[in-house]
Each structure stands twice: as structure tokens, then as C-alpha cells.
Simulated assay, not measured.
Amino acid sequence: MRTPQELFSLQGKTALVTGGSRGLGLQMAEALGEQGARVVISARKQEELDEAVAHLAARGIEASAIAVDLSKEANVQPFVEEALRRLGQIDILVNNAGASWGAPAEDHPLEAWDKVMNLNVRSIFLVSQAVGKLSMIPRHYGKIINISSIAGLAGNGPGTMQTIAYNTSKGAVVNFTRTLAGEWGRHGITVNSIAPGFFPSKMTKGVLESIGVDRLAKGSPLGRLGDDEDLKGALILFASDASKHITGQILAVDGGVSAV
């Protein structure tokens, strides 16, 4: 019987993190590497990836990067094949790449709706499908962690945000997680989701400026926003064998906002 320390260890494991060059994605790549995993991260911009790899290397983490636009279907299979060439196998997949768009529903541009849906939903399906078929299903082992959002658990209150495409896409990620967990459990693959609340990031910068950090923090039972450590524990739980009997679950990391 393994100890808790052994169950949470990622020594000898490999991980692929999409959208891993900054913000929450980089925080999660850091956590995986700190627990012993070898990591490949992806994003669209090579210069941001270079900075992220240097950041991880300075912490003793073995990581490399692949520049790719996952909203384009043709890019997905070569991307996964390249990640497999570097890692040998993919034990852990973190589907984090995403986009947002703020606009009133009545004026929301269709092209912006499609941009959000293609990256936030379609690419998660395509990447998971490719990783499953090429690595996880044949080995009867895998950990898939989809990054949704508390925005996918409820609508927006008056005077807060106007992000109908983003909320809709994250709601889709929630049910994608549950459905894939049901289908792939027979393959020894667990599929779970982390639903972050407000964390300071490039994506949330506009919302934080328009609504205000203090106002958002007051809406949380813990009275604060997320920080650079707050996703690490949940991620390592889902990425490690500590969660070998947990699948299809959505864990909000939001200071209690979604509970009140």
C-alpha cells in the first residue's frame, strides 16, 4: 500500500499542458514539474513559450514547448505526435488553452463566437481524442484535466460581465468532462475539471479593471482572489494516483463564490 506522499508523486510521469506559456497554464505546468513530471507546454506565441521554458528551467523543471494554434483542426494531430515524440507517452493532459470575448449578447459578433467555441470546446475535443487514441487508450492509463470556469456553472449577474460565448463554452467543457469520463473509464482514464474563479491574468485584466478587484474579492467568502499557488493542489490531486477513484468531477477553486 502506497503512502500519501507516493500517491501524490508524479516522478516518472509525463504531462502536456495547452495554453501553458503564462497565467494559470504556467502555474499548472510549474506544479506538475515540481512534483516530478516531464512537461511539454503549448501556446501560439513562441516568444512567450521561450520565457515560460526559461522560467520552468530556473526551477529545475524539465520542460519544452511547441508553438501551435489549436483552434485550427489541421494543427492538432501533428502537435500531439510531436509531443509524443518528445515525451514518449502522455500520462497527463491539461486542456487549458482558451479565449474570451466581451460583448452584449445582442451585439456579439459571430466570428468572435466561433473563435471562442473553436478554441475552448472544439480544440479540447480534438486534443483529447488524439491523445486518447495515440497514447492513453492503448496503455489503459491517463489523466485528463479540463480547465473550465465558474462562469460555466452559472450566468452573469446584472452589471458584471457580458461574456455569453465564454460562459457557454465553459458550460460545454463541464459536460464534456462528465461525458468523456463516462466513456473512457473502461480504458483506465480519469477525466476531471477544475473550475477557477477570478485569478489575475491577461484574460481577466479587463474584467478586473472594469468591476474592480475589491468588489470581486468582497463577493468571495474568503475575501480574496486566487493567487499563484491556488490551482496547484487541485491539479496535483487530479493528475496523480491520489485521484485514481475520482472521475467526472468538477472542482471549483474560487474562494467559495459558487457556493453562496
Rank of each mutant, 00 (worst) to 15 (best):
L24H: 07
V40Q: 03
T247H: 00
G19T: 10
Q46E: 11
N118S: 13
A83V: 15
P196A: 11
L153C: 01
P138G: 12
L56Q: 01
Q27K: 07
A217W: 02
H187T: 07
G171L: 12
R122A: 13
L235N: 03
G23W: 07
D91H: 14
G152I: 08
E209R: 03
Q11E: 15
A65H: 00
L216E: 02
G206L: 06
P196Q: 04
I92Q: 08
A103E: 15
E34V: 09
E229T: 15
N192R: 06
I90V: 15
L7G: 06
L225R: 01
G152D: 06
L26A: 06
F176V: 09
S42E: 05
G255W: 06
G185T: 11
R215S: 11
A242N: 12
G226H: 08
A181R: 02
F238L: 11
E111T: 15
G248V: 10
L134S: 12
L32H: 02
I144R: 00
L251C: 08
N118E: 15
N167G: 10
L119P: 00
G185W: 06
S240M: 05
A37L: 10
G212L: 07
D214P: 00
I147A: 02
R215I: 12
V260S: 08
G185V: 14
G23Y: 04
Q27H: 12
Q249Y: 05
M28G: 12
I61F: 06
S71E: 11
V257T: 13
G36T: 10
I90Y: 09
W101F: 15
G182M: 07
V76G: 00
P78R: 02
P78V: 08
V94T: 12
G197Q: 02
L208E: 01
A252P: 13
S9D: 12
S201Q: 08
S64A: 08
Q89R: 13
R122S: 13
V17P: 01
P200F: 06
A154V: 11
A239D: 07
A29P: 05
I137F: 06
I137N: 03
P138V: 13
P104W: 13
E183Y: 06
S149L: 07
L70S: 07
S169W: 02
G185N: 06
A165L: 04
